[in-house]
């Protein structure tokens, strides 16, 4: 499904290396968590995968089902099946949420050479999916994320994910700014999308999100590299002891 090979990334504007050789393999249907202290390169990894400006890949590749994502435009990556749930979803005044979603769904279908979704079909689907995420029709009509609370924005990200049906979902600190109830709602939304084929990368600081979205593999990232990989118990270890011990252990080795 996804393979990141020896990924080295620096900032375009300054001579600062952020990723120093990231290797990661995610199989179909798997959920991987990436944890790590601030500034370790977790979010950068997700931005580089989605094609955000400002980064320069100096080495390595990112393959999604054998295709090199790094050679594609952001919209082509989306059509190829990549979805990034933003840590800070962007507000877009003047663009209705519904219009935005319909444009996105149909743009991806068009790019893949598929038929566009009819308005009735689209409405039916979005209503059902919005309902399970407790997104009311008012939120669908309002401009994208404008005036949405933190929780509403994150739920809106999950709604987009549900409508776009990607192969690989990256959740970048989706738990930040969420209360317990909102976290449950968002996690249920994500879990509903687990179908044994779709894969997930969950980037988080905290173990608590992983109580809801259970990972198969946990990676610890530090200083631009994945320094340790393990099962769900690794997240618990971090929760109890913090990163200090782990970092010391790796550096000592």
């Amino acid at each position: 499904m996804l393979e990141i090979k020896n990924l080295h990334v620096k900032l375009e504007e300054e001579d600062k290396q952020i990723l120093k050789g990231v290797d990661l393999k995610v199989g179909p249907g798997e959920v991987h968590a990436i944890m790590g202290p601030n500034g370790s390169g977790k979010s950068t990894t997700s931005y580089v995968m989605s094609g955000r400006d400002g980064y320069e890949v100096t080495e390595g590749e990112v393959l999604l089902d054998g295709e090199n994502l790094l050679e594609m435009e952001p919209e082509e990556r989306a059509a190829a099946g990549l979805f990034l749930a933003f840590q800070y979803p962007v507000e877009i005044p003047g663009v209705g949420n519904m219009t935005f979603l319909r444009t996105a769904v149909n743009a991806q279908r068009k790019a893949r050479g598929e038929e566009e979704m009819s308005s009735t079909e689209f409405l039916k689907e979005i209503r059902a999916k919005a309902k399970s995420l407790k997104i009311d029709s008012d939120m669908l009509k309002r401009p994208v994320n404008v005036g949405f609370s933190g929780g509403e924005k994150k739920r809106n990200e999950i709604l987009q994910m549900a409508m776009l049906e990607p192969k690989l979902c990256i959740l970048d600190e989706t738990d930040s700014g969420l209360d317990v109830d909102a976290m449950k709602l968002v996690s249920d939304g994500v879990n509903a999308l687990r179908d044994g084929k779709r894969s997930f990368i969950v980037i988080t600081h905290y173990q608590r999100l992983l109580d809801h979205i259970k990972p198969d593999v946990v990676h610890i990232m530090s200083n631009g590299r994945i320094i340790k990989t393990g099962g769900p118990e690794l997240a618990l270890e971090v929760e109890h002891n913090g990163y200090a011990d782990l970092l010391a252990e790796v550096e000592g080795a």
């Binding site: 005044p93 663009v95 776009l164």
Partner: peptide, 25 residues
């Protein structure tokens, strides 16, 4: 906003038009 739209699969041209019309809304 442009990157957000593109990351959802909307090509640059369409995304720019969408944001331009939003500006006029």
């Amino acid at each position: 906003a442009l990157f957000y739209l593109r990351s959802r699969g909307v090509p640059t041209g369409d995304a720019t038009d969408l944001l331009t019309l939003a500006f006029l809304a």
